[in-house]
């Protein structure tokens, strides 16, 4: 009985306390508008950024989300960097994570090359368009839209009920033509699982929007890729997660080049972010079996909701 009460308290109180602290923390970015550089030495900011992204990396893995989606709203809220540089770094954080995870996922047959290539072509084009639009917009509009998007993502994460092994009775014509089907070894079931997909045209349409959003806000967009692969197209959850990583590496590459050409990537900010996130995700992967993942996931959803609200308020100039 007491453990039930303790669990219940952890599920409700922990996310509430952490998100409350996040909401009321002072924003360095706001202070930076007045006094850009003199408050803290640059190397202190770099150290803080490294430690912060390291912690983000740990909770991102445990909560089952990509680091990019947490990075942009939270770093743009608490660090003195312009959101252009945060988005540029966010894309590179997501890209480096996807590149380092991609090879083993492809080798195991969890990520599917044909499924990814079919969706990424259209997604990468819209990702370039999103990056161009995002960098041309005034900061307040970007903050406003980012706030709305992040709050929507937290809602989707809260409501989404993924399906581990969707049953597809009849694949659609386009997926048959593109030969998008496969088989993978499921470590949980200890057997091979055959899969196929349906509603391919709907998936292609949705990837236009996902790519645009990823490019515009510098987000990894795994949070959107996975539900589309899993719930719309009907790919098994493991295949959806792994293929999402692969699609992300293509879409984010396209958008990253726009940010690089627009001068929105600073090595001083991007590299500690990448290093912190990579180390954090490695530690997070080791902790995965030892921590209460559902509580961490609730914390992340609460963090996202609060970070989204802060971005929204900044967008309104509050």
């Amino acid at each position: 009985m007491s453990s039930i009460v303790r669990d219940g308290a952890a599920r409700v109180l922990l996310p509430a306390v952490i998100s409350g602290m996040l909401f009321f923390l002072p924003s360095a970015a706001c202070a930076a508008q007045v006094q850009p550089a003199d408050q803290l030495a640059w190397w202190v900011w770099m150290l803080l950024l490294f430690v912060f992204t390291f912690l983000l990396g740990i909770i991102a893995v445990v909560a089952g989300v990509g680091g990019g989606v947490l990075f942009v709203p939270i770093v743009s809220s608490f660090f003195p960097f312009h959101i252009d540089f945060v988005r540029g770094a966010g894309l590179l954080v997501a890209l480096s994570g996807a590149l380092s995870a991609g090879s083993p996922l492809l080798k195991k047959g969890l990520a599917n090359l044909k499924l990814a290539l079919s969706m990424a072509l259209i997604g990468s084009i819209s990702s370039i368009a999103g990056a161009m639009v995002g960098l041309a917009m005034p900061e307040r509009i970007v903050q406003l839209l980012l706030g709305l998007t992040i709050m929507f993502i937290s809602f989707v994460m809260y409501r989404a009920k993924n399906s581990a092994y969707p049953q597809i009775d009849k694949p659609d014509t386009l997926s048959k033509m593109l030969r998008i089907y496969g088989v993978y070894y499921d470590e949980h079931l200890k057997k091979d699982v055959d899969w196929q997909i349906h509603r391919t045209p709907v998936g292609l349409f949705l990837f236009i929007g996902i790519g645009f959003m990823a490019g515009m806000f510098g987000l990894g967009a795994g949070f959107a890729n996975v539900p589309v692969f899993n719930l719309v197209l009907g790919a098994p959850l493991r295949v959806s997660v792994a293929t999402s990583v692969f699609v992300l590496s293509i879409n984010d590459t396209a958008a990253a080049w726009v940010y690089l050409h627009k001068g929105a990537v600073l090595p001083l900010i991007a590299v500690p972010s990448i290093a912190g996130m990579m180390l954090g995700t490695k530690i997070g992967a080791r902790l995965l079996t030892k921590v209460h993942t559902s509580v961490v996931r609730r914390v992340v959803i609460a963090l996202l909701a609060v970070a989204g609200l802060r971005a929204l308020l900044k967008g309104f100039g509050i």
Binding site: A37, W42, F81, H82, F85, G263, L266
Partner: peptide, 16 residues
């Protein structure tokens, strides 16, 4: 790095 830090609050186009 000091010069970058003095200006990293600027929009990318202004920064450059």
């Amino acid at each position: 790095a000091e010069e970058v830090a003095r200006n990293w609050h600027l929009k990318a186009s202004e920064f450059h």
